[in-house]
Design a protein around this nucleic acid. Structure first.
Length: 682
DNA sequence: AGACCAGGTATTTTT
DNA sequence: TACCTGGTCT
């Protein structure tokens, strides 16, 4: 099959529906051994994974259920499932195990919980729960910042596949600072505590399965089960994930890993882009294929991206090129301060939307930190530009969602003290501080979990009659729910639970205005609806498993059709997305190479972050910076980012050097006129 | 239990 | 400056 060059892509949101290029095809067809695909931004890596699965099923006769595609996010998994469904048809496609590392880990953990000494109902503690556990283990009054740091260190160890007992002595006693040694002691207690709760944190979802797979018998079983693995965004994998891959893919290395070290931006979370090189060491037969043709961006954008990233040391040299048109110069807009910057961006968007065919959904404004969104939001609102802000409090962090999740966790796992404390008096049921303390005392004395204590007659006897009564009802309800959740329809059981605790009435009572109450009720219902959807996708699955799946979801508005709204998001949040028109705000020293990152010697990662931002753009790219910005109340002056100097001058179009303030005013006025006109004439 | 104030803290955050 | 959290007061 001769390759044929794709023509220019126009603004349809679709990748060219044409044949694979030569490298892509090679990557799809190579199954002789382990394969690493180094895929530049916009080079069609997801497509390669999809086509490879199709190839394995249709041409190699591999049963779909023997194939696992592993992603880092639910969103990526979902997209992959959809695309695979379109390509293969629902039937074989549905059998392919497309999941996140964590979801796969959960599956393994559930199946072998007994090997590790867990009881059947395992709770997944989210970030916040885990942080609370750490807080409670540290002396009262420990500053939140210290709690966070301690938790982060524990996480770092776990991501290096080090259980507390495996942490090298140099970090725990000999030669370790007292601070480090104390964090390690905390780690030990944290481990014990989670054990008692029969709970796991997110890190455990990889770490614990590793312990399963280190045993020969289950390892061989899983290696039989999954005959081929495809890993997406491989540069984001950490040590434990890498080990999991190795154990599953066996010594022959039945896998394809796809990644781009230039887009590694999660180093601070334990991701090890070095895993790309590690692969070569561990699998000498590793075959490497580079995808360098970009189907997304015009050449100007790509040249800028290439020039920038060339300043980083890289494992695999790549040179991205594009068969698309040259494109406009990259605009660089100096602004007086962050307000002006926001106004400029709003004005530019308004102007473009009006003069070109671009729609609101074609624009994205990217920035380093969430705090930068505020001014931008304000500016967009002033111009009545519809926008959508990604990030912020996720669905699962909302109180109402958290409450219900804890009810379900407790129903499934009576040892989950964290969940118990959260819901035992929510909605209020006469179990105040005193009663709760009494239950805790009883539990402590008799070495019971809080729930077990609450069930015990002697414990109840110590409570006032009203409290004892309502505690009994609470316990009965949870026991019944847990039971029904496994034996009959879990979703019905949950609906009845929500009904029985009068949760919606409680939300109405709790919210200070009716619309807020309705929103929260809607969230609660949405959670149940999701549970229903999960059940429909996994018929016969019990509450424990459904709940696990639910805990691994991050945001339920995943379906958000970007719609007709300008997207505001952090650079991190933009990875994997693309937009015709991209604005990068705050391209300043101390912000875009972020100060703290620089202190940690992470300039290269900051550069990659900028690289990710640039390569989101299909048509136009606008970089802006402010000369002054308020930080913690006081105005500080800023310098343009060093990264600007790394971009070839001939690609840049600098706008009004120091008349910027006036220009902003003018633009703003022009924009205001425009929006008024539009209101008048539609 | 709810309101209010003081104090501490302000990168990123796939699961 | 603006926020969130935790503690205290009513």
């Amino acid at each position: 099959m001769p390759g044929f060059m794709p023509g220019p892509v126009h603004s349809s949101n679709h990748k060219p529906k044409i044949q694979l290029n030569e490298q892509q095809r090679a990557a799809v067809q190579y199954t002789a051994g382990p394969l690493l695909v180094v895929a530049g931004a916009g080079s069609g890596k997801t497509r390669v994974i999809i086509e490879k699965i199709v190839h394995l099923v249709q041409n190699r006769g591999l049963p779909p259920e023997r194939i696992a595609a592993i992603t880092f996010t639910n969103k990526a998994a979902k997209e992959m499932r959809e695309r695979l469904g379109k390509r293969l048809g629902a039937n074989p496609a549905g059998a392919v195990a497309v999941s996140t590392f964590h979801a796969l880990g959960w599956r393994i953990l559930r199946e072998h919980h007994d090997l590790l000494g867990y009881r059947p109902g395992i709770s997944i503690l989210d970030e916040q729960d885990s942080l609370n556990v750490v807080r409670d283990l540290l002396p009262g009054g420990t500053p939140p910042e210290r709690v966070r740091l301690a938790r982060a260190q524990v996480s770092r160890w776990k991501n290096l596949a080090l259980a507390a007992g495996d942490v090298p002595k140099t970090h725990t006693s000999e030669g370790a600072s007292e601070g480090e040694a104390s964090v390690w002691r905390l780690y030990r207690r944290y481990e014990d505590h989670l054990r008692d709760l029969n709970g796991v944190d997110f890190d455990d979802l990889i770490l614990q399965p590793l312990r399963v797979l280190q045993q020969e018998e289950p390892r061989l079983r899983w290696q039989q089960q999954l005959r081929y693995l495809l890993v997406d965004e491989y540069q984001d994998s950490n040590e434990t994930q890498y080990r999991m891959l190795r154990l599953l893919a066996g010594d022959e290395g039945r896998f394809t890993a796809v990644g781009d070290d230039d887009q590694s931006i999660y180093g601070w979370r334990g991701a090890q882009p070095e895993n790309l090189q590690q692969l070569q060491r561990d699998y000498p037969k590793l075959h490497i294929i580079k995808l360098e043709q970009n189907y997304r961006s015009c050449n100007t954008v790509l040249k800028a991206a290439n020039a920038l990233i060339a300043n980083n040391p890289r494992a695999v040299e790549k040179n991205l090129w594009s068969g698309l048109h040259e494109g406009e110069a990259i605009r660089v807009i100096p602004c007086a301060d962050d307000k002006d910057e926001a106004a400029m961006i709003a004005a530019e968007i308004l102007h473009r939307e009006y003069t070109s065919k671009a729609r609101w959904g074609d624009f994205a404004v990217l920035y380093r930190g969430n705090h930068q969104s505020r001014v931008l939001e304000q500016a967009l609102r002033e111009q009545r530009i519809p926008y959508h802000l990604s990030g912020g409090t996720s669905f699962f962090e909302r109180t109402e969602v958290k409450d219900l999740m804890c009810y379900l966790r407790l129903a499934v796992n009576p040892d989950d003290n964290t969940a118990f404390m959260r819901v035992v008096n929510t909605p209020r049921r006469d179990l105040g501080t005193q009663s709760r303390a009494a239950i805790a005392r009883h539990a402590g004395q008799h070495h019971l979990s809080l729930f077990e204590a609450a069930v015990a007659a002697e414990c109840r006897a110590a409570l006032p009659a009203r409290s004892a009564d309502s505690l009994a009802r609470f316990c009965d309800l949870l026991i019944a729910t847990g039971d029904r959740g496994e034996r009959s329809d879990p979703v019905e059981a949950v609906q009845d639970l929500v009904e029985a605790i009068g949760y919606e009435a409680w939300l109405r009572e709790q919210s200070d205005n009716p619309p807020a109450a309705e929103r929260r009720i809607e969230n609660a219902r949405e959670l149940v609806a999701w549970l229903g959807r999960l059940r429909d996708d996994n018929p016969g699955m019990g509450l424990t498993d459904l709940l696990g799946r639910l805990s691994l979801l991050t945001s339920l508005d995943a379906d958000d059709d970007p719609g007709q709204q300008v997207r505001l998001m952090t650079l991190h949040g933009s990875k994997g997305l693309e937009f015709p028109h991209v604005f990068l705000a705050g391209v300043e020293e101390d912000l875009l190479p972020h100060r703290n990152s620089m202190d940690e010697g992470a300039e290269a990662e900051e550069r990659r972050l900028m690289y990710v931002g640039i390569t989101r753009a299909r048509e136009t790219l606008t970089l802006s910076f402010a000369r002054h910005r308020r930080r913690y109340g006081e105005a500080i002056s800023c310098e343009p980012s060093r990264f600007l100097e790394e971009l070839p001058k001939d690609l840049l179009d600098w706008r009004g050097a120091d008349a910027d303030k006036d220009e902003a005013r003018t633009k703003e006025r022009a924009a205001a006129n425009l929006s008024r006109l539009k209101e008048l004439f539609g």
